[in-house]
């Protein structure tokens, strides 16, 4: 099966949905972070796919965008983990159901 734009988009949509499901469904803060990372990966896949099947595949624009986005994702993961640790120190749990101080 040759890769087509549709196939890439289907895979990316699937990846995004899995990530969203994890971010919405899991109770553990770290798994939510992982879900968010999955969604980011899906976005990267879209970048690459649109570049690869786009009008100018010889310019490495898609890759560059994806690499920047991966770097940002790494920074985001670091910040996210730091937040999880800070929140854990405060609540002594990583269950997001228990973080309800913002309840109106």
């Amino acid at each position: 099966m040759t890769p087509t734009l549709q196939l890439c988009l289907i895979i990316s949509a699937a990846l995004f949905s899995i990530g969203l499901l994890a971010a919405l469904g899991r109770r553990h803060a770290i798994f939510i972070l992982i879900g968010i990372e999955l969604m980011l990966a899906a976005a990267n896949l879209n970048f690459i796919a649109f570049w690869r099947f786009g009008p100018e595949p010889q310019n490495p624009t898609g890759v560059m965008v994806a690499i920047f986005s991966i770097a940002i994702a790494a920074a985001e993961a670091a910040v996210g983990l730091a937040l999880v640790i800070a929140v854990y120190r405060h609540y002594r749990t990583t269950n997001v159901r228990r973080f309800n101080q913002l309840k109106g």
Partner: peptide, 13 residues
């Protein structure tokens, strides 16, 4: 409005 604010991040997302 405050009734919608359950404080659950996952609901927001």
């Amino acid at each position: 409005m405050s009734r919608f604010h359950s404080g659950q991040v996952q609901l927001y997302l």
